[in-house]
Design a protein around this nucleic acid. Structure first.
Length: 489
RNA sequence: GCCGCCUUAGCUCAGUAGGUUAGAGCGCUAGAUUGUGGAUCUAGAGGUCCCCUGUUCGAACCAGGGAGGCGGUACCA
């Protein structure tokens, strides 16, 4: 069976997974979101900073490439001088580097926003990419809950500005968790981690799943076994009571939390901190019920040192096949007092958050919340020798601020109409011999045309009626199309 | 990383206890309509049946390996 050795050219056109191709709908949605979200940040007094895609690996921190797996988690390459550089995996680490480098000359506290792509080398899924856009805001050099509350309130505003309809921002704080762990006498670091990770999974696994993880362990449906924390029944009960303290209002949650543990210093400090944040949130206009307290919010364990929070969409999201998909959080943040200090011999507190633009756009794309594509007005070309004429018309439309183009292909009228249809063009402009003689143009409103055509059954009527079509003098073209666009929208 | 399922036309999927020319619907192209998209009718184009190796007279179908996709789980700055 002799085969030619030429590889199938089609098999070369492959896209690495997790690196999304974005077409106009998603692309525009993301750009608009970035614009609206960063406008919120600017409104609150934050200034923009952009840093490069690569950082030296040791500046990014924890993920030092080791010899065996230099690309675990991050994408890393070696520079000419053999130093490891990594593509940034978030916008916070570069900020920490920037702030530390310029600390002496910056206004303090330093308030900045940033947006751009970040990269993570991990398994992609729905709403989960290896290259994605984030839009962050952080304050470096401010301690105390006001800076944290500001971040939380601003995140809620930013999510709303980004177009999220139903969402909440759930807030927790580290002291509360370590107080809880102390109160059940979980001293061992590994046990503490297991308990926190178990709490984090409440929304996914439910109470009984979390109970299994707190006790002996849990076997999932694929038969994989996860070792539990090994707590006794009494302690499991206590942790579950803590997990269930999240109520729909902040005040109720604080009350419920206060009843779970008593006489623990860190725990009381956590409650006091949340109480203060509650007051500040109200002062900043963050609505109760949208911004809530939730003791099961965990976030990065080695990273955050105080309040933590995350934003989540509340709508059930279905994929193209109607299956429920778990998109997860669309943003989050918290206080990270150790991150900038790492570069300096002084304490530099910091707090901030990140909004997952790509994930939000992906979620909205699945729920059909993205605006439908709308193409340019297409000016048809019926006789090649009069192309310039079409360009004159397109030029007039553009001068009036109407998005428009001349058909650039070489096909006849019918394919040109099809082209306009596929582009989502609101209208086409037709100038042929007839119109040229009379000094007119024919304008077809494709949206109205489509609506009217639905009523037509008969074939000849189909052919002869020209739904949504008008012939006007050239002078009236711009005004007529403007009128159509206003009526359409 | 681990576990499970899947891979046939651009898309969604049929298919044969291994047997000549591999099918449907949608989409695409063209005509019916000499200057009209979306309806209708007709015709047409489009496939290394994921890849490699093996078993066989013969493999899209069977076996082994690999790749890719999907889901779960672990980790997640």
């Amino acid at each position: 069976m002799a085969k030619n050795k030429k590889p199938n050219p089609k098999s070369l056109a492959r896209k690495p997974r997790g690196f999304p191709d974005k077409r106009e709908d998603v692309l525009k949605a993301e750009l608009d979101m970035i614009h609206r979200v960063s406008s919120v940040y600017r409104l609150w007094g934050f200034e923009g900073i952009e840093t490069g895609a690569f950082e030296y690996a040791d500046a990014l921190g924890k993920f030092l490439p080791d010899q065996d797996r230099p690309n675990a988690g991050v994408f890393a390459i070696q520079d000419d001088d053999e130093q490891w550089m990594s593509l940034r995996y978030d916008l916070t680490a570069p900020l920490a580097r920037f702030a530390a480098e310029h600390w002496d000359t910056l206004p303090k506290p330093f308030r900045r926003y940033a947006y751009g792509p970040v990269w993570r080398n991990e398994k992609p899924g729905p709403g989960r990419f290896r290259e994605f856009m984030q839009c962050d805001a952080d304050t470096v050099g401010a301690k105390g809950p006001a800076a944290d509350a500001e971040m939380i309130a601003m995140m809620a505003e930013a999510l709303k500005a980004a177009g999220a309809q139903r969402f909440n921002v759930r807030v927790n704080t580290r002291d509360l968790m370590s107080g809880l762990l102390d109160s059940i006498d979980a001293r061992d670091e590994e046990t503490r981690l297991i308990i926190l990770r178990a709490l984090d999974k409440l929304d996914r696994l439910g109470l009984s799943g979390v109970a299994d993880l707190l006790g002996e362990g849990r076997e999932d449906e694929s038969g994989d076994y996860t070792k539990g924390a090994g707590l006794d029944a009494e302690r499991v009960k206590r942790v579950l009571a803590f997990a269930e303290s999240g109520k729909s209002s902040r005040g109720e949650t604080l009350e419920a939390l206060a009843a779970v543990v008593s006489g623990n210093e860190a725990y009381d400090r956590g409650i006091a901190e949340l109480r203060e944040i509650d007051g500040l949130l109200s002062a900043m206009g963050a609505p109760d019920g949208v911004v809530v307290f939730d003791p099961t919010i965990v976030r990065g364990l080695e990273y955050y040192t105080g309040p933590v929070f995350e934003g989540e969409l509340l709508d059930e999201i279905l994929d193209e096949k109607g299956r429920a998909v778990r998109i997860g959080s669309v943003g989050g943040g918290g206080r990270y007092d150790g991150l900038v200090s790492r570069f300096r011999n002084e304490e530099i507190p910091a707090t901030g958050f990140s909004l997952g633009i790509s994930r939000l756009a992906a979620a909205m794309s699945l729920t059909g919340e993205l605006n439908a594509l709308s193409g340019p007005v297409v000016v048809l070309v019926l006789d090649r020798e009069h192309v310039a004429d079409s360009h004159v018309l397109a030029h007039q439309l553009r001068a009036a601020g109407i998005r428009s183009e001349v058909y650039m292909g070489s096909s006849g009228m019918r394919p040109q109409m099809k082209y306009a249809d596929r582009r989502g063009a609101p209208a086409v402009v037709i100038v042929g011999e007839d119109e040229r003689q009379k000094g007119t143009v024919t304008i077809k409103d494709l949206i109205v045309g489509a609506q009217k055509a639905k009523a037509i059954k008969d074939n000849t009527e189909w052919r002869e009626s020209r739904p949504g079509q008008v012939e006007v003098s050239r002078d009236e073209m711009v005004a007529t199309i403007k009128g159509m666009l206003e009526a359409d929208n």
